[in-house]
C-alpha cells in the first residue's frame, strides 16, 4: 500500500494512438499512407484522494479516451497509469487486474445504452458484486442491492423492474448504484449528465457530491460543460488535441485563466453581466488529430502565437497562480495573468 497522502491516481506520459488507416489491400493498391490518430498524446496528471479532477475540452480532444484508458477499456500506447502505487500496465492477467478493477468503476454518458435492456435492475446492480464474489449469500445480495438503490434515491422495490420503466435521470441513478456496488474508491464519469434534462442534471451532480462526501470517493469527471465542471470539480484540466493545456485548482482556473485556450473557452460561458455585450466567439475549429499542427497544437487559433509556438511543443510549467500551463507566451511573460490585452 502506498502512503495515504500520495495521489490515488497518477498518470505519466499517457498516450493512445488509433490506427485509422484504410484496409491493407487499399493501402497497397491505392498507395494510401498509414494514418495514426493521436487521441491522447503524452498526458500527465494526478488525482488526490477524495478530490474531483475534471477534464474539459471541445469534442474530439480525447477526454473520453482518457476515461476509457483509466478504467482499462483501452490499453495505453505509451505511458503509465498508477493506481494507489500499482502500475496497471504491469498487470497481465484478468486475475491480477480484478483487485484493482473492483476499486475503480465507471459511470457512462448515455443512460439509455448503459443498462442491459433484458436485465432486471437488481441483476444489473448486483452484477459487480457477483463478478467479484464480494457477497456469497443470495439474501445478503438482495439486501445490499436494496441498500444501494436507497442510497441513490430509488426504492428497493425498483430492483424488480426493467430499465425501460425508468426515466433518464433514474437510469443514471441505477448506473451510479451499479458503480457503487463493488465499493470502489475511484469513479470515472464520462459526461454523466450531458444526456439529461437540465433540471435532472443538478440532481445527479448533487447526488454525486453527496456520495463523494459520504463514501470518500475520488472522481475523474469528464465534461464539456464548464458550468457543470465549476459546480463539481476541485481541480480542472483543460484538454486540447490530446494534450493538457492547463491544469489547476477550479477556482483559480475559472477566475484567473492563464492559457489562451482556457481564456477562450471561459469567454463562451453565458453570464448575466455579459448580457447585451459583445462576446468573443470561439474562433476556428479543433485541428485534425491525424495531422496535428507542429509545435503548440493551439498555435493556429492563438492570437499570441509566434515562431517558437509553431516550432516547439510547450510542456506544462507551474505558474505563480498554482496552475500548470503549457504555453510559451505565459512562460515568457508575454501573456500576464488577468484580462487579455485588448490589442492582441
Amino acid at each position: 500500500m502506498a502512503e495515504m497522502n500520495a495521489p490515488l491516481v497518477k498518470v505519466v506520459g499517457l498516450s493512445r494512438y488509433f490506427d485509422v488507416s484504410a484496409p491493407w489491400l487499399n493501402r497497397v493498391l491505392e498507395g494510401q499512407p498509414r494514418l495514426i490518430l493521436r487521441a491522447v498524446d503524452g498526458l500527465d496528471f494526478e488525482i488526490n484522494r477524495g478530490e474531483t479532477l475534471a477534464l474539459v475540452g471541445e469534442s474530439g480532444c480525447g477526454k473520453s479516451t482518457v476515461a476509457r484508458l483509466v478504467v482499462g477499456l483501452y490499453r495505453p500506447t505509451a505511458g503509465s497509469i498508477v493506481f494507489d502505487g500499482v502500475d496497471m500496465a504491469g498487470l497481465g492477467g484478468r486475475a491480477e487486474m480484478a483487485p484493482i478493477r473492483r476499486r475503480l468503476q465507471m459511470i457512462f454518458q448515455d443512460p439509455f445504452a448503459s443498462l442491459n435492456p433484458r436485465w432486471r435492475v437488481s441483476a444489473i446492480v448486483s452484477e459487480p458484486i457477483r463478478a467479484f464474489g464480494l457477497i456469497e449469500d443470495e439474501a445478503a445480495i438482495v439486501e445490499r442491492v436494496g441498500q444501494l438503490l436507497r442510497q441513490v434515491g430509488l426504492s428497493p422495490v425498483d430492483g424488480e423492474k426493467y430499465p425501460h420503466e425508468f426515466s433518464g435521470g433514474q437510469r443514471q441513478r441505477i448506473s451510479i448504484a451499479r458503480a457503487l456496488s463493488s465499493q470502489p474508491e475511484f469513479l470515472v464519469s464520462d459526461e454523466p449528465t450531458s444526456a439529461l434534462d437540465v433540471s435532472v442534471q443538478a440532481q445527479i451532480l448533487n447526488l454525486m457530491k453527496d456520495l463523494q462526501r459520504q463514501l470518500g470517493l475520488t472522481y475523474l469527471f469528464i465534461s464539456h460543460n464548464l458550468a457543470v465542471v465549476r459546480h463539481i470539480a476541485d481541480r480542472v484540466g483543460v484538454m486540447y488535441l490530446g494534450r493538457l493545456a492547463e491544469v489547476g485548482p477550479a477556482e483559480t482556473l475559472f477566475t484567473l485563466p492563464r492559457h489562451p485556450y482556457t481564456r477562450m473557452l471561459l469567454d463562451t460561458i453565458p453570464d448575466l453581466e455579459m448580457t447585451g455585450r459583445q462576446r468573443t466567439p470561439v474562433a476556428g475549429e479543433v485541428p485534425n488529430p491525424i495531422n496535428p499542427p507542429t509545435g503548440c497544437a493551439f498555435h493556429p487559433r492563438c492570437p499570441f502565437a509566434n515562431d517558437r509556438c509553431r516550432r516547439e511543443r510547450p510542456e506544462p510549467k507551474p505558474t505563480e497562480t498554482g496552475s500548470a500551463v503549457a504555453c510559451h507566451a505565459v512562460e515568457e511573460g508575454r501573456l500576464p495573468a488577468g484580462p487579455l490585452p485588448a490589442a492582441a
Binding site: 478504467v71 482499462g72 484478468r94 478493477r101 465507471m106 445504452a113 448503459s114 443498462l115 442491459n116
Partner: peptide
Amino acid sequence: NKEYVQAARVIGLHPILIMFRHVLPN
C-alpha cells in the same frame, strides 16, 4: 459498442460471459 457491454468489460467479466449473458439475449 453500447455502454452496457463496456460496463461489463470495466468490471473485468470474461469475454465469453459478456457474449452469452449480455450480447446474446439482445
